[in-house]
Amino acid sequence: MRTGKGGPGGRSSTGRGGCRQAGLESCRESRLDANRGGLTVGELLGTLESRLELQLAPGAADLDRPIVSREIQKPGLVLTGLFDYYQPERVQVFGQSEVRFLAHAGESAAAVVAEYCRRPPPLLVVTRGLAPPEALAAIARQSGTALVASPLATADVIAVLLHHLNARLAPRVTVHGDLLEIHGLGVLVLGESGIGKSECALELVARGHRLVADDVVEIRTQGDRLVGTPTELSRHRLEVRGLGIVDVRHMFGVAAVRESVAIEQVVELVRLEEGGRFDRLGESAQAWEVLGRSRPMFRIPVAPGRNTATLVELAARRELLQRLGINAARELREDVARRIAREDAGGDSP
């Protein structure tokens, strides 16, 4: 991000550059070192600098200020003095109407400056390449709030901000398991340590399916979806006992990995014990719940001689067929019911 020319009130150029306050490298370091469950202003600016062509206005901006809300706010009525509508935890976006209003607000702008300084937002964003009015520059100077400008249209800036904020600040959990894309279906494989999840994943990758995460899966919400991703350290890597760490991307090619996938089915690997009870027909799956969302789950017993990868692949194929209305268990039950009805009626068996 480049600093605006001629101070905060001057019109800024729209070229791409670096993060002025602590340097672009500081923004990037913030993005790498920050807790993955949170987000700072510097991290956001370092990530979106090129995409939004952001420019940071002169002044001592607090780039370590946390961003806690996934929502943004266009102030609108707040600028007229209706401060009950002000949401200070949100990134504030100023389009053409807000900038023009503040530029001609006169003395009434002082009340806006005072309120924003009393409860400063994490970030002020001006769109359409407009010069930030003096009121916004005063807020930035007095409260240490970062003030940036983008030449892009307001709707485009808001869309990018919302997408990134939702991706980073959505509720998330970490689970022990492997995540793969099998025939286009996101399948999460769970099970106790040492049961063979990684070996199963390796076999599935060798068959042409795609690895998303091994051992640790980060899951976040995205609307009604559950999106799974790997950790930074485990990305593209898979641990195989006896062989160590395998780089799946280098060994099998870039088509063998994915950065993320929506989780649509869960398979739990369990040890086959004498007397254990498992579903014989598979008419109804159990429910696996996380972050307020539920996904179908199947428990697959693991024992010597059973091909775990084939069973997990079969579970994915079964789910895809059921989406097409093909349910072998239901069809069997209906066939049995029809045969019983014919026998009760004294009819001949087919």
Score class of each variant (00 low, 15 high):
E29A: 13
F298L: 13
L165E: 06
V254W: 12
A60M: 06
V290Q: 08
A137F: 03
V267R: 00
E71S: 15
S150V: 03
V312E: 01
V302K: 01
G242I: 12
G346Y: 12
R2H: 03
V270P: 05
R330N: 08
R299D: 02
R293L: 02
G129L: 02
I326Y: 08
R338W: 11
L162C: 12
F252D: 01
R318G: 01
G81L: 04
A329S: 13
D279V: 02
V261M: 03
L202K: 00
G177W: 01
G292R: 02
R28L: 14
S13A: 12
G184E: 12
E199D: 08
L79T: 01
M297S: 05
L211V: 03
P122G: 09
R330L: 09
G242Y: 12
R90Y: 15
R241N: 01
P132E: 06
Q142M: 10
A61V: 07
R306G: 00
V173H: 10
S294Y: 02
L269Y: 02
P66L: 10
I340V: 15
R342Y: 04
L63A: 07
M251N: 08
R339E: 15
Q21H: 13
P151T: 05
G177K: 03
C19F: 08
E49F: 08
E134P: 02
R306V: 01
R28W: 11
V41I: 13
R20C: 06
R225D: 14
G4W: 02
L238R: 00
T221P: 01
V160G: 05
V257S: 01
G42K: 07
S108P: 03
H183V: 00
P171C: 10
E71A: 15
R277Y: 03
H104I: 05
V187C: 13
E43I: 03
D178E: 12
H250E: 14
G95V: 05
L243Q: 10
L238T: 04
A140T: 00
L147A: 06
V160W: 06
T229F: 02
S69V: 11
E264H: 13
G191C: 11
A103G: 12
I245R: 08
A22T: 04
G275C: 09
L147M: 03
I326Q: 05
E232F: 07
A256P: 01
R306H: 00
R241Y: 04
E283G: 08
G38T: 13
A309Q: 03
E43Y: 08
F101A: 07
L188P: 00
A255T: 09
R16W: 09
Q142K: 14
S26T: 05
E192S: 09
T40G: 14
L32P: 03
R16V: 09
L52F: 10
R225L: 11
H164Q: 07
A285D: 15
Q73P: 11
